[in-house]
């Protein structure tokens, strides 16, 4: 494969990454959120593999494999199990209406484009074009956490942020040192497991997974005391 084709592929994947971030925000049903999230994981794996091929960086192949197994398969599977077992409401409940969220998301993307532009000029890596997109994806993941009611969608938002950071790492530095990456991967896995446990706990305690309910509960408790 020629260098320009690899470059184009990376750009293409970056564009798809952005698309998945928007799609995560736009979904109405919990399971389709999960499908898009899994798709994002696969996309990350593919990007890492392509960059690995392009830069002859063998460690990156391992990263790609880890992304494939962990982000593309394991985490979605875990979350799916949680959703099934908890009988979480099938509809995603947004705080803001969807068109408004989309507009804000476009604004956020534009903003990250604006702030990354000067940085991009200084980079010489073949992946530098994707920096702006990675930043946008981080912000979009956060936006997802902000605008959703259910704890579980917030967790997916959090994981999407992590995905974007991984993508940024590939883009900015051709991947982090393998040790760091493995460490982060396990952190994320543990976090997801703990979140899963928490969901069960939260459910049994509050009878709901809505974050606002927990808040109300706390306030209520304060009143009691």
């Amino acid at each position: 494969m020629s260098a320009t084709l690899i470059q184009q592929l990376v750009d293409g994947f970056a564009a798809l990454m952005l698309l998945t971030s928007f799609a995560l925000l736009a979904q109405h049903r919990m399971l389709s959120v999960l499908h898009w999230f899994a798709g994002q994981g696969l996309l990350l794996a593919a990007t890492a593999a392509i960059v690995a091929y392009g830069t002859d960086n063998e460690e990156l192949y391992i990263s790609a494999l880890m992304a494939l197994l962990l982000k593309g398969m394991l985490l979605p599977w875990l979350l799916r199990r949680v959703i099934r077992q908890l009988h979480v409401h099938r509809e995603v409940e947004p705080l803001m209406n969807s068109s408004m969220t989309m507009l804000v998301a476009l604004g956020v993307t534009l903003f990250s484009f604006h702030i990354i532009q000067p940085i991009e000029k200084t980079s010489l890596l073949m992946t530098r074009d994707s920096m702006a997109i990675a930043t946008a994806c981080v912000l979009l993941g956060m936006l997802m956490m902000i605008t959703r009611k259910k704890a579980i969608t917030q967790v997916i938002g959090f994981l999407a942020v992590e995905n974007a950071l991984f993508f940024a790492a590939i883009g900015a530095t051709n991947g982090m040192p393998l040790v760091v990456e493995i460490g982060i991967a396990f952190d994320v896995l543990i976090a997801a497991l703990i979140f899963g446990l928490f969901f069960f706990q939260i459910r049994t305690t509050f009878d709901s997974l809505e974050v606002d309910t927990m808040n109300a509960h706390l306030i209520h408790k304060d009143d009691d005391e």
């Binding site: 750009d11 970056a14 993307t109 534009l110 484009f113």
Partner: peptide
């Protein structure tokens, strides 16, 4: 339907952004 159509708008706008981010930036 409006949501579908605004989705189409968002996608085309993403096309515009990715043109500027990925294809001109080089």
């Amino acid at each position: 339907v409006p949501e579908y159509l605004s989705g189409a708008f968002v996608i085309s706008f993403l096309g515009l952004l990715s043109y500027y981010m990925l294809e001109v930036g080089a």
